[in-house]
Amino acid sequence: MNTMMKKLLATTLLLAGIAVNQATTQPLVVNAIGQKKVTLSDKVGKNQFTWVSDAPLEKINGTAEGISGTLTLDPKNVAGIRGTISAQVATMKTGNGTRDGHLRSDQWLDAAKYPTISFTVTSVKDVSITGASATGTAIGNFTMHGITKSVAVPFTLKYIEESAKTRERAPGDLVMLTAQFSISLKDFNVAGSRGTIGSKVGETIVVKAQLFGATGL
């Protein structure tokens, strides 16, 4: 009886192990094999962060460009994505030149002292595959205003294999990543001008990312 229970337990653990392994190494349905280096480039598509500050007195829509970075991706193991993405603070726009100046000033993001905002992927979880697309959550270190915090970013990924059509944009396979997350200005020690946060600027900023890269760059 004892031996039977041990065998049953071992079988259950083995099956559970296989299930976990399959869940974490689910492959994209593409022909590409092996680890690929994906370089972000505006040639592939417009790399952009769009963000919204929704405060009682004012709603501000803005963008950040000047995005660069590389990711390593094995299409057979989406959970293995790693890499760093960064955006230039000086490229942030809100449609009003004066306001853009305030945003980059030392009262806010201090572009002179902290010129980049970056995100480094350290792990990926909850991967789900649909054909050549995947969804998941990237866990990583988000750095802004000189402060680094661990954040979880839900993302979608689309992998397009090289074709005559894709070569018009960039050589190699193309990859698109979209993500949405929120950041609290307080967490990153962004105080702004006195009394502004919470009235004219939201305490939390909603950020959407659109990233495009190619394996042949």
Binding site: G45, K46, Q48, T50, I160, K165, T166, Q210
Partner: peptide, 11 residues
């Protein structure tokens, strides 16, 4: 974007 179907902001 005609290839990816995504929307971006152009100033």
């Amino acid at each position: 974007d005609p290839l990816f179907g995504t929307e971006s902001i152009e100033w």
